[in-house]
Write a protein that binds this DNA or RNA. Structure first.
Lengths: 126, 126
DNA sequence: CAAATACATGAACACATGCTCATGCATTTG
DNA sequence: CAAATGCATGAGCATGTGTTCATGTATTTG
């Protein structure tokens, strides 16, 4: 058996036996189950698009209607509307209708924080 | 002109005039340029895959050789090797060769932190 | 040295994705 | 009411992605 028998180290309680860790770590420790990995990937995929990231960067400052988002990004209303649909489905944005305009904004601070975290991480290294 | 003239609010220095903000915010404020959005999307795309996320979740605990990663995920060595190639290209993992085995580990704490941040965010809401 | 092992890699295929174009719907305006 | 505006949506197409399969390379073993 040439394999490094990784199963043998499952008992390793890494760094002493500290059974008191905050809830977040408890829920997010260990290998990812397939279903959770899929949900996580689905969510990240929504963020992993240049157009949607630029939309989020705009909405991070203030709310915009669709056509203003489109003109800011130099794209068609249709393209933007399609992407906003994806952002809505992922619950990353909300909207309110005013007359025939629809104003979008980030769903909550959660989205902004995650976006900024990733952006900062990329601006730090290499 | 029906548009909500978003250009008129470019001067808004949001929340009083505070010219003293930490470096991270300074570098990551304002709308994303196309090139930066692309780089950010490229990076996120590497994370946005169930297989690669599961690989990262395993490597978060300890280093693994390719075939152990494969057997843990119930996938072929080839599929895993291809995905590890992507993780290497994105500088998310490093490796060391021991005999004919290759042991992979996360590149640095940076990767682990970002991964855990996203995972926790998803476990919190809705 | 020959066979086996651990891994890497290119080609190919199925599938997903983002845009454009055409169209539809709701609201406002003349 | 009719035309125009702002936005949503489905179809279609070009492009990208993840896996399998076949093959190649380096190392170990008999």
């Amino acid at each position: 058996m040439p394999h490094s028998s990784a199963t043998g180290s499952l008992d390793s309680s890494q760094e002493g036996l500290c059974s008191e860790r905050h809830a977040a770590s408890l829920a997010t420790a260990g290998p990812l189950a397939v279903t959770e990995a899929q949900r996580m990937a689905e969510f990240l995929n929504v963020l992993a698009d240049p157009t949607r990231l630029r939309l989020i960067s705009l909405l991070a400052a203030e709310e915009y209607c669709v056509c203003d988002l489109a003109s800011n990004l130099g794209m068609t209303d249709s393209a933007i509307s399609h992407q906003l649909r994806a952002l809505r489905a992922a619950r990353l944005v909300t909207y309110r209708k005013v007359g025939r305009q629809v104003f979008y904004q980030l769903h909550d601070h959660h989205v902004l924080e995650l976006y900024q975290t990733v952006r900062e991480h990329l601006n730090e290294e290499s």
